[in-house]
Write a protein that binds this DNA or RNA. Structure first.
Length: 109
DNA sequence: ATTCTTACA
DNA sequence: TGTAAGGA
């Protein structure tokens, strides 16, 4: 694999940097994903998702969270149980986290 | 105006 | 899961 980056790659990386900085409340997430707030809070209670500021009185969600929520919705729609969905979620979450970490590291160079 | 928790015609 | 109540 080629690891050399050019100018267009930098542009994309900056977009990613912006995306990961975006933080929204549950209402926005519900609008964007189409998942009812009720479900989002429920999945939160079940530990499927982790809002980015546990000290806040309100749930704060970042891009990764939104990504997870959409993933959960799709998995559930496919017929998986909440439990197996949680496991499949973690697998893909680790991969996503790695990708974002590398992207973030690249933008700093 | 928006979110939070609790509870159930 | 939907939704209404009641407080923050």
């Amino acid at each position: 694999m080629e690891d050399k980056i050019d100018k267009s790659d930098i542009d994309i990386l900056m977009d990613v940097e912006f995306l990961v900085s975006v933080i929204v409340a549950i209402g926005e997430v519900a609008n964007i994903t189409g998942v009812p707030q009720r479900k989002i809070r429920y999945w939160d209670e079940k530990g499927l998702i982790e809002p980015v500021d546990t000290t806040s009185t309100t749930r704060q969600y970042d891009y990764l969270n939104i990504k997870k929520i959409v993933l959960i919705k799709d998995l559930l729609d496919e017929g998986y149980t909440l439990d197996t969905t949680a496991k499949k979620l973690n697998e893909r979450c680790q991969k996503m986290a790695e990708v974002f970490k590398r992207a973030a590291a690249l933008t700093k160079k």
